[in-house]
Design a protein around this nucleic acid. Structure first.
Lengths: 290, 290
DNA sequence: ATGGGCCATGCAGGATTTGCATTGGACCAG
DNA sequence: CTGGTCCAATGCAAATCCTGCATGGCCCAT
């Protein structure tokens, strides 16, 4: 029995959807499904109700959720406590952040805290889902991530200490001098540079779509995983794509398309567990607040 | 992180010896050693002190032992509770027992409880170490095993409900009509049919040896894993070997060698967890007591 | 009906784990 | 100091387990 199975199950219990939970746990849906099966086999009972949408837990599942959650919490806190007490020795703070922040804001963050906090770092970078999962699994002390106040964020993050580092915006960009007839029409849809299905920003874009009914008429042009790649594709003139403002440095060759209705507010946040940490981490946290 | 690593670590903390703990966990010493390393890597700290005999835990190790133990207990109890509440549905009692009991006492046990308890069974058979480990891991509801009052038994079993099914003895046997000059002399040691290193009974024999100083002069003749095999080898006239009396049915072609000093008292016991179980299990337990 | 979203499963490639055999170190008796 | 014994770590090959991809079957909403 791997405790990752427990974490999978808890994510499933919360998100009530195999595909989303798999995504969140940074795993294929197939592998995720089998992990849940393995867990059910280990427990000896079905934990989720078959053929039900959205996913519901069986009675045993509810019972197990509580016990497994408490058990897991105890274990991870034990580990965190041990790591915390060894903090001065190892004096390495583990940061997790999605690619886009690593490429834009990390330098600023480093500059801000560098002189105040003396410590070595290790940095975990990946997709938003990946780094969030790893942070929650205890693989990192601090998580940096975008958060969209307009969208429900993951419940597990609601229990963390949180500080807003700065405001950001999610809005459409296009290559300098181009236009593509945005926001498009049924006859002449604009070409969209979209995020791959699994990306966090893909959900933000979907939210923009929903909010505007059919006012956006697009055709899919390119799909990218990372904001940086997407930005390059936009700059190369392939179409319109949404980016966080923070990812667009001057001279990138892309310009924003106006219109508040196409825009979503974002926050760049730092998270850390509520439990006690070491002095170095406290100092870093204070620096982030200030 | 596999929770088996936690169980390994807890066994190690208790037995303070990699080899013994590996044996108890039914694993090679090499694999066991690596699992501990994996766990240490997961926690992020050394848990056991290097180069120390017997094994000692680091401070972090002690701390982790407590947390991991509590976490594991919570998890396994949750599972057990779920299984317990589903007992009437599945109505299958899972018995674990070492080979020797499966071949001798199980029939009697079955006969004794069969009419009183209506339930289907599943039976796990293996070496004593294996089935004990599996029982403690929650893979069985009841464990049947030999216990020697003269030897310290495993601590983890001390916390279980326990009932003595009957008395037994561990004593030397030889082929009918043979003798081999037992207990032997330096010039003419008797040939010993011994248990393989890993077997539980091998430890009992070692205890007999220690108790008698150098009074036993033997030379190793054959080594066997299982009592039944050993019995056959004795009957074939290859030498003297220790057996539990219960394993020797009439007409087996072997006879006991007298002398209380070569003998060890044994109990055949049943164990079950202290936590609440289902009605079927309670009925079976009552039948075992009576 | 039919299309789309969702979970289960066959399969092949790949990562991890295991046991065996061996090495290197600590401890002990002489 | 020395040889022997007990113990844990490690190289290596085999086996096991896990993963992702592609696909199939199911249910629900249109």
């Amino acid at each position: 029995m791997d405790i990752r199975w427990l974490q999978d199950f808890l994510a499933l219990a919360e998100l009530r959807n195999f595909t989303r939970a798999a995504e969140f746990r940074a795993l294929s849906q197939a592998a995720f499904s089998r992990r849940i099966q393995s867990l059910e086999h280990w427990v000896g009972t079905a934990l989720v109700v078959k053929g039900s949408q959205p996913v519901r837990l069986t009675e045993a599942g509810e019972q197990f959720r509580e016990g497994a959650g408490a058990s897991l919490e105890r274990l991870l806190e034990t580990r965190a406590a041990i790591r915390g007490s060894q903090f001065e020795v190892m004096s390495q703070i583990r940061l997790a952040m999605p690619n886009v922040l690593a490429r834009s804001d990390f330098r600023r963050i480093l500059a801000a805290i560098g002189p105040k906090v003396q410590s070595s770092f290790s940095v975990i970078v990946g997709t938003t889902a990946e780094v969030t999962a790893r942070y929650l699994a205890g693989d990192a002390d601090i998580l940096l991530a975008h958060d969209c106040p307009a969208l429900p964020s993951h419940e597990a993050l609601a229990t963390q200490d949180r500080v807003v580092l700065r405001e950001d915006r999610f809005l459409p960009y296009v290559a300098q001098g181009r236009d593509f007839g945005f926001p498009g029409s049924a006859k002449a849809p604009f070409p969209l540079i979209a995020y791959a299905q699994r990306a966090y920003f893909a959900r933000l874009f979907e939210h923009v779509l929903e909010r505007n009914g059919g006012a956006l008429a697009y055709r899919l042009s390119v799909q990218c995983d990372m904001s940086d790649v997407l930005k390059e594709v936009i700059a190369a003139g392939h179409g319109v794509g949404w980016l966080p403002e923070s990812a667009v440095e001057p001279g990138a060759g892309v310009v924003a398309l106006g219109g508040a209705e196409w825009e979503l507010p974002l926050e760049i946040c730092a998270y850390r567990p509520r439990r006690a940490a070491g002095p170095k981490l406290d100092a870093l946290w204070a620096a982030l607040r200030g």
